[in-house]
Write a protein that binds this DNA or RNA. Structure first.
Lengths: 340, 340
DNA sequence: TTGTATGCGTTATCAT
DNA sequence: ATGATAACGCATACAA
C-alpha cells in the first residue's frame, strides 16, 4: 500500500479512501491510484484490515463429517450464502478427524471469527460445549436444537415427516415393525421418535409388536441392527424398518441383500433425509425429504443478518418436509409361508 | 493481553513469552501469567498475530463441489491433515455456488493464506487461472495436473485403473462397448481415456464397435448419454458402459432401470472412484478404487512440508488404484433375441 | 531474566 | 479534498 501511494504520488489515506471508497477524492487522483493498484498488483492485507476493523468476514462451520451427503449439502448451502456476502467459511469436521469438537472451540475462538454455524453430531453434544462454542461469537444451529441454548436454529419438520413416513408403512398393514432411532442426545432423534410414536398410536399398533433400537446414524449401525433383528424365524421378525435417517436405512437394505431377503417383498424400509443416493439404490428408497441445501443457506443468512443487523430474524418454525415414495415399501407379505 | 500483563504484574513481553514459550521466564512469574490468562479468559488475537508473523496457519481448499463424495472424501483428508498441524482450512466450492474459480483467486489472495490445495473441476481449468491462484501462495494439486503448471500434485494411477476396468469387461467378451469420458480439459480424463484405449487395443476390439462420448462427471450426463445410446435396436446398442467416474456410471444405471433394462443382464457398467455409494446400489457397481481420503491427506502434508521445510518432497508417482469387482458386469447376453 | 520500544498494514480522526 | 498520525494486538531486537 505504501508502494501504491508512492507510485501514485499520494498519501496512504488517499489510497485507503479509493480502495474502500470511504472518502472523497478527486477524479484524477483516483484514477492514478487505481492505475498504481493494478500496476503493482496490490491486494489489501486482510489480517491488517481485520485487526483494525474487528470484522473478519469469515464464519466457521461445524459439521460432524462430510461423508454423510446430508451434511455435505448443508455445507454447500452455507458456502453459497457466504459467497454472496463475500465471506469465507472455515470447515470443521470433528468426527472426520477424530477430535473432540472442543478442539475447534479453542481454535475458532482465537481466530476471532465473526460467527459460527453449528450442526452437532451424536458425539459430544452437550450444553457446556455449546456454551463454549458460543464464546467464539454468535452461533446459529442447523438441524438441531439444544435445550437451554438459546440461539437461532434452522430445522425441518422432523416430527411431521417422521409421522408421515411411519403412517405410510402402517397404512399398508404392517404390524411387526422395527424402529431404528438416532443418537439419543439429539433433538431430531427425539422429534422423529415422537412422530413415529404418533403414527403407531394412530394405527393402534400393539406395543409388543414394535421393536425399538438406537443407531448412530451411520450405515454400519443400520446393518448390524438389521442383522440382530432379522435372525429370528420369518414369522416373528419385523416386516418393516422405519429408520431415523437414510444411511441407517441403507445399512438395513444392504444387510437384507446379504441375507437374500427381498425388499420390499420380505421387508419394507423407509429412511429420512432423502440424500441423493436414496433414489439410486434398488429399490429406490422411500424417505422423507429435507431441504438440506436450503437449510444451510438459511442458517448462514440468519447468521449474517444477526451479525450486521443485530436483529435476530425468527427462524424458529421448522421447514416443511415431504414424504417421497419410491419402491422400498410395500404391503407385508401375508403369505408368510412363501419362503418355505 | 494488556489486561493479562497488568493482572499478573508483568510486562507485555513476558506474557508473550509464556503464551508462545518463546523466551525464558521464571517459574513463579510464569505461573502468575498462566493464572491471569485463565482468569481473564484470554485468547490471542490471531489477526494481530498473523499481521506480525506472516503465517496464517490457514490453507485454502478448492474443490468443485461437495455433492460428489469423492471430493468430500478428499476434503476430509485435507481437513484431517490440517488439524494435525493446528491449521484451519477454508472451503471453496466454486461449482456449488456457481461462481468462477477466479472469484476465489481474489478472495484467497487478500486473505494471505499460507497455501492452497487445488482440485479443479471441469469448468474453467486453465493455465492462466492456475497461475492466478498461485499468486495467493504455494499451491499443491490433487487428482489433477496442468501442463506447464509446475507444482506438486497428488494423483492416483488413473491410466492403470482405467485399463484394468476396461480389460475386465473386455475379457468377458463384450465387443459393442460405450465409453463415457470425463471433461476433456482434465488430465485424469485423458489418462483414463488412454487406459481404456490400451485395453481396447490389447483386445483388438474393432474401432467401429466402440462409441465414445464425453460427460461432465455428473449423474445427469451419464443418464442422458445412456438415453442417447440405448435407443437403438437391441442388436446394435452397447452391451457395456465404461465410465470415467462413478457418478456417470450411476447415471447410466439409473437410466437402465428406467428403461427396464437388466444390469448386468442386458448391459454391464463399470465406474471409477469407488465412492461409498458404489457398493450400495443394486447391483453393486464394479469400479476402480482411488484412495480419496489419503490423497487429501497427502496433498495437505505436502503443502505443509513445502511451507516450513521449503523442500518439496516428491509426490509425483501416482498412488495405486485397484479394480473392485462387484455385480454390475457380466458376460454379454449372447442370445440377443431374448427381448423379442 | 525482564521490560521498553518499534513495526507489521490498515483505517479513522483530525488538521490542513 | 488531502495528508499526517494514532491505534488495532502482538512479537521481537535490544537495553537493562
Amino acid at each position: 500500500m505504501k508502494d501504491v501511494a508512492r507510485q501514485a504520488g499520494v498519501s496512504l489515506s488517499t489510497v485507503s479512501y479509493v480502495v474502500n471508497d470511504s472518502g472523497p477524492v478527486a477524479g484524477a487522483r483516483r484514477a492514478r491510484v487505481l492505475d498504481a493498484v493494478r500496476l503493482l498488483g496490490y491486494t489489501p492485507n486482510e489480517s491488517a484490515r481485520r485487526l483494525r476493523n474487528k470484522s473478519t468476514a469469515t464464519i466457521g462451520l461445524i459439521v460432524p463429517d462430510l461423508s454423510n451427503q446430508f451434511f455435505a449439502l448443508v455445507a454447500e448451502g452455507v458456502e453459497q450464502a457466504a459467497a454472496e456476502q463475500e465471506a469465507l467459511v472455515v470447515l470443521c469436521a470433528p468426527e472426520a478427524i477424530d477430535r473432540p469438537t472442543q478442539y475447534y472451540a479453542r481454535l475458532l475462538r482465537s481466530q476471532r471469527l465473526d460467527g459460527l454455524i453449528y450442526l452437532p453430531g451424536g458425539e459430544g453434544m452437550t450444553l457446556s460445549l455449546a456454551l463454549e462454542l458460543a464464546e467464539a461469537g454468535p452461533v446459529v444451529m442447523v438441524d438441531e436444537r439444544i435445550r437451554g441454548f438459546e440461539v437461532p436454529s434452522v430445522v425441518a419438520d422432523s416430527r411431521g415427516g417422521a409421522r408421515a413416513a411411519a403412517e405410510h408403512v402402517l397404512a399398508l398393514g404392517h404390524t411387526r415393525v422395527a424402529i431404528i432411532g438416532g443418537p439419543e442426545a439429539l433433538w431430531t432423534s427425539e422429534q422423529r421418535m415422537f412422530g413415529f410414536q404418533e403414527a403407531l398410536a394412530g394405527y393402534k399398533v400393539p406395543l409388543h409388536s414394535v421393536t425399538v433400537r438406537v443407531g448412530d446414524h451411520r450405515i454400519d449401525s443400520g446393518a448390524s441392527i438389521a442383522s440382530e433383528l432379522l435372525q429370528g424365524p420369518a414369522s416373528a421378525r419385523p416386516t418393516a424398518f422405519i429408520c431415523a435417517n437414510d444411511l441407517m436405512a441403507l445399512g438395513v437394505l444392504k444387510h437384507c441383500r446379504a441375507l437374500g431377503l427381498a425388499v420390499p417383498g420380505d421387508v419394507s424400509i423407509v429412511g429420512f433425509d432423502d440424500i441423493p443416493i436414496a433414489e439410486l439404490v434398488t429399490p429406490g428408497l422411500t424417505t422423507v425429504s429435507q431441504p438440506a441445501r436450503t437449510m444451510g443457506q438459511l442458517a448462514a443468512d440468519t447468521l449474517f443478518r444477526l451479525l450486521d443487523g443485530g436483529e435476530c430474524a425468527d427462524v424458529s418454525s421448522p421447514l416443511p418436509t415431504t414424504l417421497v415414495v419410491r419402491d422400498s415399501v410395500a404391503a407385508p407379505d401375508t403369505c408368510a409361508t412363501r419362503t418355505h
